[in-house]
Simulated scan of single mutants.
Amino acid sequence: MTESNNRPALTHINGCGEAHMVDVSEKNDTVREASAEAVVVMHPDTLSMIIDGRHHKGDVFATARITGIQAAKCTWQLIPLCHPLMLSKVTVDIRADRPNSRVRITSLCRLSGKTGVEMEALTAVSVAALTMYDMCKAVQKDMSIERVRLLSKSGGKSGDYQVAEHD
């Protein structure tokens, strides 16, 4: 079913306009993968403190990485209409970009199943970024979390997607 503007209809809305969880029981299991990113922008001295290991709360990157992985596994508990998924792989990569005084967080989620993992990848980077903010807010309150977006997805009926540009 499509809307009048040739865009797909919203799958989480039933014929009466009510939110519902999509029934995926008839779908075939396929390998599905998604990657996402978030960018945390901060002052150069805040970034140096994290990189140099001088943060009084400990290893900010390690904590954010573990939190992002855990968040991906709990996405169905946070987003009401997401299915609980048996993820076979979750990675969270954190890279400091000193020249631009920012940190780029990327995630990769994979499974063999009936539904995609885009929300898990997006949740991983979002919560990892929020963890970095939480750990550093005593030092800098005006950090920003930017460019939370899906980078790619593969598998499933809707096919593959790749963001047009990466940096």
Rank of each mutant, 00 (worst) to 15 (best):
M1V: 14
T2W: 13
T2G: 00
E3H: 03
N5Q: 14
N6D: 15
N6T: 13
A9C: 10
L10S: 13
T11I: 10
H12W: 06
G15N: 12
G17S: 10
E18H: 15
E18R: 14
A19Y: 10
H20L: 03
M21T: 13
M21S: 10
D23H: 07
V24L: 08
V24S: 10
D29G: 01
T30V: 14
R32Q: 12
R32V: 01
A34Y: 05
A38P: 01
V39G: 06
V41I: 11
H43I: 05
H43S: 12
T46S: 15
D52P: 01
H55D: 12
H56T: 12
G58R: 01
D59L: 00
T63I: 14
G68C: 05
I69T: 08
A71V: 03
W76I: 05
Q77K: 14
Q77P: 07
C82K: 07
L85Q: 06
L85R: 04
L85I: 04
L87T: 09
S88N: 12
S88K: 13
K89Q: 15
K89C: 08
V90A: 12
V90G: 11
V90S: 11
I94D: 06
R95N: 15
R95T: 14
R95A: 15
A96K: 05
N100I: 04
S101Y: 02
S101T: 01
R104D: 05
I105N: 08
T106V: 07
L108M: 11
C109E: 02
R110K: 13
R110Y: 01
T115L: 07
T115S: 14
G116L: 02
G116H: 01
V117M: 09
V117P: 01
E118C: 02
E120W: 00
T123C: 10
A128C: 04
A128D: 03
A129F: 05
L130E: 13
T131L: 03
T131C: 08
M132Y: 05
Y133C: 06
Y133G: 03
D134L: 05
M135E: 11
Q140D: 13
K141R: 15
M143S: 09
R147I: 09
R147D: 12
S152P: 03
K153V: 09
K153N: 10
K153G: 01
G155H: 05
G156Y: 03
G159H: 02
G159W: 03
Y161R: 08
Q162N: 09
D167V: 03
